[in-house]
Each structure stands twice: as C-alpha cells, then as structure tokens.
Amino acid sequence: MKKQVITEENIEELDELLPEDIAENIGRSSYQAIAMEEGTETSAAMVWEYRYLEDENRDPQSHLSWIIAKDNKAGENLFTEYAKDISEEGIVKSVASFAASEAGEMVEILKAAGFSITEKEVSNIHVTIGDLEKLDVLKKKKTAANLRPLDDLQVRIFRRGIMNCIFHTKREHLEDLATLPIDWYDTDVSCCVTSDDRIDGFFLVHRLSSGRLRVEFMAAVGPDARIDLINMIRFSAFRAIEKYPKETEIILPRRDESAEKLVGYFFPGAKGEPGIYGEREEK
C-alpha cells in the first residue's frame, strides 16, 4: 500500500468517497488528509485538523474529521502513516468525535488503532431556519445602529476586526480564524458590531458545500458585549430567514462553555446527537 498526501491539486482522487463538507477544508492550513492506495484503488483515507499547533500555552492536538477503511489491515496501515505525520508535529493527543449515525465502521477502526471509545453527545447542535423563526429575540425588528453586515466591509477593516476580536476574546475559536478570507463566510448573513470606530464583535456564518450553514465565530469584546451579541444573532437570523428555505440546516458548534450557554439560551433543552468520542495519547 502506498501513502498519498491529499491536497487541493489531487483531491479528485477521493471524489467518490470524501463528503463535500469535509472536502472543502482541504487546503486550509490546519487540515491534513492522507489516503492509502492499493493499486488504483483507495483502501483507506482520513482527514484531520491540527489544533493548538503553534500555541505555546497548550498541548497540540489532532482532531479526526473523517476516516474510511475497507478493512482492518487498511485501517492499520492508515494509522501507521498518520502516527508518523503527527509525531513530526509533536502532537500530544488525538481526538475523534462522530455522530453515532455517521460512525459506521469507524468505531472498530478507532478501537483497533488504540483509541479509548465512549458514548458522548456530539458538541454540535443542529437546527433549521424554521427553528430560527420561533426565536423570541426576533420579536424586536429594529437593527442596532452599530451593527454592519459583512458585505459592507472592506477586507482590511475585516482583518483588523478579526485580530481585535481574537486578541480580546477568551472563547475557543477556529485554528485558522486569523487567516480565513472574508469570502469564506456568507457575507449576507454574517455581521459585525463597532464601537468607537473599531470592530469589536463578529457573528460569522459559513455556507458549507452541501448547503448547510455553520456558525464559525460568535463573539463580542466591546463594553456592551452581551447586547451586541444578541443584536448580531438577531440580525443574522433575519437575514438567514430571508435568504434560505425553512428546511436549511444550521450547525451551531459548542466549542466551549460560553458557546454552550449561548446556544442553550436560544435553544433551551437542545441536545447534540448521540455520538462516539475517542481519544488516544500520542508518544
């Protein structure tokens, strides 16, 4: 079996296997993908995301996004190559979290690779545009004066705002948030807030290849952070309702406790899908 590093140039080799929502991450600096080739056939492949790789305050981790293997031998070879790649980066821990409905044979592959597996609710919450329409926060129609949609923003001002938010927020955020371009986000639905001529909050929504929406960043760091956040959510919800059909799915990641509380505030009682959680300490 031969290892093939998957990049934007050769991603079509996994066209039939790789889900489109995962495929669009290939090319982002924190994502890696490899495939094991047996002749002309792909016997196994995986995509993972590095976290805290260049962060001295935290131990670097690898989060597996997607795995496929036709049999245990292919899976074993896959993880052998994976282990070589992550050891070069000094990864301390590997983590995998999948919805039970999507896990399939991944559980056995992970167990065989030495992952300890537990059942755990997935951190993402899935709602629809139709669910947004029922939110109490939408009863107020007025847009705050300090709120601006992203389509109104110059790139340089956007970057300044992103850096301002990153350096002032304690919220967990995407590894490559500082470098993602403005056109990664749905600029009609995403928005920001300003105070004293500075952007100090963003609500950023990305439209996945499958048509689903995913909230990539929601934080406000100004003096009226709580009100700003609610105003941004209201604005984005209105825009999303105008633009997308009711059944459009929205993914709300709960990366930390703050995000959990915020999602819980708007969707009380909402739970993530039942899932499997695996982790492995790396040498």
């Binding site: 600096s29 805290y52 790789l53 260049e54 962060d55 001295e56 305050n57 935290r58 340089r156 970057r159 300044r160 850096m163 990153i166 350096f167 590894e175 490559d176 500082a178 470098t179």
Partner: peptide
C-alpha cells in the same frame, strides 16, 4: 506585548 501564545495569530497580526 500580548497574552496570546499562538504564533499563527502573532504572524497574522504582524502581516496586518
């Protein structure tokens, strides 16, 4: 001077 430990973010800021 900053509290962040992320080199990625520091580099992005220096590029800005």
């Amino acid at each position: 001077l900053s509290d962040t430990g992320s080199m990625t973010e520091l580099k992005a800021l220096s590029e800005l």
